[in-house]
């Protein structure tokens, strides 16, 4: 029990937090971009699985890690294209299309894995961890926090990049306008559909990369259904973060921390809490958090609503 209160325990928790948050950061930041343009994609879970599988299959076949991530991002974008075609061009209900994408993602990756990649034995070589100069020398915290692989570090860039894109470029300005006042954008002579396509494609390729993190930068194997609900968590993160990419980064970390703490507390024999209670913690916390956020103003005005030209 005592070592729970030590700096070492804290540092371990923080390191695990960041690693467990990484796939959620990718997916939720992507979803922020998509939802800012007014498109709600609940198919993140399926998209992440597609990314995880494609990345794994590519690296298994070629041994080339960067190519694996590239393929995962492209596969995510392809899933996004399918989603966008139905949700934006055909103007079908976005929740329905998202549900279909989840089914397709789970079905396709499991089917192809069983048909082509059953015996993958050793798995693939994953992205190696690297020390951040100086920072990794900090006592206690250095090793757990600053000895991660480059994908984990890149989450900072992803969040900052999305922030820059959304709030510091004219593309981002228009993209947000598409989510709030599509009619104005349309009248101004720009294509609402085009911006929404772009937002969905960016969002889904990030989700694909988040999936690829699972197979190429954390575990080294593909397991059917291995996203284990992370895509749904990312959806909750977006709401909790009030559609801000920087917010999504920190809220994802909070979730990562709950995951990490859950695993750590279970390993403490002196704590007699049923493990199911610990596992339910992150989900309970989300609900409580939603009550605390309690806002309606930040929601993109046309979220989930297809745009029809006048």
């Amino acid at each position: 029990m005592d070592h729970i209160l030590t700096l070492g325990f804290l540092a371990t928790t923080l390191g695990a937090t960041w690693r467990l948050a990484t796939p959620i950061i990718f997916a939720s930041v992507g979803e922020v971009i998509s939802e800012r343009a007014g498109v709600l994609n609940i198919g993140l879970e399926g998209t992440m699985l597609i990314g995880a599988f494609t990345g794994f299959a590519t690296v298994y076949a070629t041994g080339n890690l960067p190519l694996g991530f590239l393929a995962a991002g492209a596969a995510g974008a392809l899933a996004g294209l399918l989603f966008a075609f139905f949700a934006i061009t055909i103007k079908a209900n976005q929740i329905i299309v998202g549900a279909a994408l989840n089914l397709l993602g789970l079905g396709l990756t499991s089917f192809l894995f069983r048909t082509y990649l059953v015996q993958t034995g050793q798995g693939v070589q994953i992205v190696p961890a690297m020390d951040v100069p100086l920072l990794s020398q900090i006592p206690y915290f250095g090793t757990p926090l600053f000895r991660q692989n480059v994908v984990v570090y890149s989450t900072i860039l992803v969040a900052l990049g999305a922030y820059f894109l959304l709030f510091r470029t004219s593309f981002g300005l228009t993209l947000r306008a598409v989510g709030e006042h599509p009619k104005a954008v349309d009248v101004g002579g720009r294509s609402v559909a085009l911006y929404r396509y772009a937002a969905v494609l960016i969002g889904c390729s990030l989700a694909g990369l988040g999936g690829a993190y699972l197979t190429l930068a954390h575990a080294n194997q593909f397991v059917e259904g291995m996203t284990s609900g992370r895509g749904f968590i990312a959806l909750a993160v977006v709401v909790f973060a009030r559609w801000s990419p920087i917010g999504a980064f920190f809220v994802s970390l909070l979730f990562g921390m709950f995951y990490a703490l859950q695993l750590q507390l279970q390993a403490e024999p002196s704590i007699h809490i049923p493990y199911q209670v610990l596992q339910a913690m992150p989900y309970l916390a989300t609900i409580v958090a939603l009550l605390l956020v309690r806002n309606r103003t930040d929601t993109p005005a046309t979220l989930g609503v297809p745009y029809r030209k006048v």
Partner: peptide, 27 residues
């Protein structure tokens, strides 16, 4: 001799299985 235990609650989450192990090793 000290033995600690963790249940993942599923058989698919290789990511959690890895983190649980890292935590035990740190512990």
């Amino acid at each position: 001799f000290k033995v600690s235990q963790v249940y993942l609650g599923n058989f698919t989450d290789a990511t959690a299985a890895k983190e649980a192990a890292i935590n035990m090793i740190h512990g």
